[in-house]
Design a protein around this nucleic acid. Structure first.
Lengths: 106, 106
DNA sequence: TGGCTCCTTGGCCTAATGGCCAAACGAATA
DNA sequence: TATTCGTTTGGCCATTAGGCCAAGGAGCCA
């Protein structure tokens, strides 16, 4: 792997890494239903506002979500909905793991 | 989010997180072409064998790859090929980001 | 058995991550 | 202008992650 290839993989990994956190996964799934402001998400998750704000900025920095300030509040929305496809594949992994487990304990 | 929901998101996030590393991304893509043994991957990546071995065990632990010992060597192969779908979505994110960037610098 | 090769594990260090609190900041409102 | 509300940022701390090196198996083959 040369430096160029490595850089390409790093750019990709950064995006996937942004999805690799339970809270951010929840946020993405919630934003798929429609835009939400920070405190709405904060309430749903049950963490500190600052924590949620940081999670949102991670997602924003890699380009998965976008924000829009309206009056007092900031509304976040999903910019690239195809990340939702991750979920179905993740379920396949979990299922295949369950099957494997069943085989071992048979 | 209650404890049950949180656990579900954590299980999902663990799988995605396993994909969120440049070297592991490379490994997965390489395994998509066919099984590889550890030193083959080590050579391609250009890191320490122990490093590659650890990356492989991360992928194995979440159930993305499987290993098979044959004689002296251990062959790894892709267990759940749908993770390759991640790549196309990641490219969309990168493209949408590039477009966004072009708009801003116009 | 002894030595070789291939791989994994443990140890250690450094860097990055995630959480909360407190402080700052911008917009609306009094 | 002062205050309040919604959000972001900085600081701090604890935990995790990722890298290499060294040591420890597990198979082969002499």
């Amino acid at each position: 792997m040369d430096a160029k290839a490595r850089a390409r993989y790093e750019a990709r990994a950064a995006i996937i890494k942004a999805m690799g956190h339970p809270t951010r996964l929840f946020i993405v799934e919630e934003l798929a239903r429609g835009e939400r402001c920070v405190w709405e998400l904060t309430e749903m998750v049950g963490a500190d506002v600052s924590t949620i704000s940081k999670h949102l900025s991670v997602l924003k920095n890699v380009g998965i979500v976008q924000d829009e300030k309206r009056g007092n509040q900031v509304f976040y929305s999903l910019l690239v909905p195809c990340v939702l496809n991750f979920f179905s594949c993740v379920e396949s992994v979990l299922q295949s793991r369950a099957k494997e487990h069943a085989k071992l304990t048979k």
